[in-house]
Design a protein around this nucleic acid. Structure first.
Length: 484
RNA sequence: GGCGCCGUACCCAAGUGGUUAAGGGAGCAGUCUGCAAAACUGCGAUGCAGCGGUUCGACCCCGCUCGGCGCCUCCA
């Protein structure tokens, strides 16, 4: 039974879906005017894991993640580059799909775009006008916050506090300083749509209300995004949505913490952010391995806390993952077992699953779940030392694959290992392209030499393979396995 | 000014009002090995920023102090 921290109530709550066995969740995607950074990756990943875990727990998940493709920043970017907004948005939606795909983020069941929901947006604004919660000034429409009683409920602030801390000049046309735009009249050259208030475009928050209501209904289960969206974005969404429908909007509000660099939030002004593609490009590891490293790294910290990104952290993550794939390699080899080890394996797996779920159920404690995975790895390693049958090995590997899948880990059949204590100097190291047949032939040759006690030759061969990035591990039976 | 977060071993990071404070990385010692690698075993916080308080008992609750950070403007 999943418990999850609800920003709305400030407490961990037992999760209960509105409809049995169906979860409807909406997550704020991105405004598509630039490449995504690791912060976006974390957010996408957290909700990807929530979705996977809910599915694992037997729910059908209707998962909507939007693209905001009409916005000031997009217009600005388009003008800077002298291209249309569509050029910009198409480019970065495509980039989003590529980047998130490399991280193994599953596609949402629906990925709506704001520009494709103008009718719904206008209708929603109109409803707010008719209810007297919004007003028009020269083609702009504002939501009047003091007409909505519960304003500030999500972010735990009141209008007075907000006003006192306002750092921005108040638009004189607003009736109340905190009023926010639902509809903006368009200036020449800007994208615009016909509306009862003249040609214009939607304000920032209204598109999420319109799209979530359209695709999930007026009341749904989960709404999520980064912590920075709590105010004003989600606060405003609640005001608009509840104001228009008179019903409860989302029931559980989930927010992930930031990715930081040296204890500070990543931001463009500090210039301390990393884009996802930058990390993949700079990585010395293949794409699949890099993606899994990033996932593991991000999931090794609880989703609500801050996580500090660094090269060192990523290196440590690689070492941790190597341990799993090392085990998987050995599990892929045939072996002899006993009734006792088979039984112990089942016992260990059973215990593990319980602990794993316990962690995940406790507000998605992925660090704890990973620790349990590590524990299982240790158990299986010990059993392997005692002897495990081929069948038992398959079962063990499958366990890692199936539960790992909830975190999007351990799905790979091949894995590039870190270089261990190098047998050769950097200068001797050659491009690690050597074909498998040659490796196997060299291993046979080497083991023949070992049998003859010609260790000089054996070491030469190892040295040769090592220079091609191949690491040899000798098995007790006189044969060897290798890995890159 | 308002709201809020963080401070656990060399590094990362869970966790609990009371048995041995998870796990990973690094390190050291050992087993195994021709040598390695991998794996396994052992070592490693007498303490959970500091000081008070509540309590039979606190790292975990409360208060204060110190240090770091976030939001209140666009932001995952």
């Amino acid at each position: 039974m999943l418990s999850i921290y609800n920003t709305l109530t400030g407490k961990k709550e037992r999760f209960e879906s509105l409809a049995p066995k169906i979860v409807k969740m909406y997550v704020c995607g991105v405004t598509v005017y630039d490449y995504c950074h690791i912060g976006h990756a974390r957010s996408a990943l957290v909700f990807d894991v929530i979705r996977r875990y809910l599915e694992f727990s037997g729910y059908q998940v209707e998962f909507v993640k939007n693209f905001t493709d009409v916005d000031d920043k997009i217009i600005k970017r388009a003008n800077e580059q002298g291209v249309s907004c569509e050029t910009i948005t198409a480019k970065f939606i495509d980039a989003y799909d590529t980047d998130m795909g490399r991280l193994g983020i599953k596609r949402a069941t629906r990925e709506p775009k704001a520009t494709e929901h103008m009718a719904e947006i206008i209708e929603l604004v109109d409803r707010l006008m008719q209810k007297g919660l919004a007003y028009e000034v020269a083609g702009d429409v504002y939501f009047q916050v003091d007409k909505y009683q519960a304003y500030g409920r999500l972010s735990k602030r009141n209008l007075e506090d907000l006003q006192a801390g306002a750092r921005v000049e108040v638009d004189a046309r607003k009736r109340y300083p905190m009023d926010f735009a639902l509809w903006k009249s368009s200036k020449p050259g800007e994208p615009s749509w016909e509306s009862p208030w003249g040609p214009g475009r939607p304000g920032w928050h209204i598109e999420c209300s319109a799209m979530s209501i359209k695709h999930l209904g007026e009341t749904f289960d989960i709404h999520g995004g980064g912590m920075d969206l709590i105010f004003p974005h989600h606060e405003n969404e609640i005001a608009q949505s509840c104001g228009a429908t008179g019903k409860e909007f989302a029931r559980y509000w989930i927010h992930n913490g930031f990715v930081q660099i040296n204890q500070e939030k990543m931001s463009k002004s500090l210039g301390n952010f990393f884009t996802i593609r930058e990390i993949f490009e700079k990585s010395q590891w293949p794409e699949a391995e890099t993606g899994e490293m990033l996932r593991y790294f991000l999931l090794a910290t609880h989703y609500r806390g801050p996580v500090d990104f660094s090269d060192q952290a990523l290196r440590e993550t690689k070492q941790a993952l190597d341990g799993f794939y090392d085990l998987f390699n050995r599990l892929a080899e045939p072996g002899q077992g006993s009734a006792e080890t088979d039984v112990e394996l089942h016992y260990s797996i059973g215990w593990f699953e319980e602990r794993f779920k316990m962690g995940m159920d406790d507000d998605l404690n992925t660090p704890s779940a990973l620790a349990e995975l590590q524990q299982l790895k240790n158990d299986v390693n010990k059993l392997l030392g005692q002897g495990l049958s081929t069948e038992a090995r398959k079962i063990a590997r499958e366990e890692f694959r199936s539960l790992g899948n909830i975190l999007g880990l351990f799905q790979l059949d091949a894995w590039r290992f870190s270089e261990r204590r190098a047998m050769v100097s950097q200068a001797e190291f050659e491009v690690p392209d050597i074909d498998v047949q040659l490796i196997d032939a060299k291993l046979v040759e080497r083991n023949e030499a070992r049998k003859q006690k010609d260790f000089k030759k054996a070491d030469e061969i190892r040295r040769f393979l090592s220079s091609h990035g191949i690491v040899i591990e000798d098995k007790p039976d006189g044969t060897s396995r290798w890995k890159r």
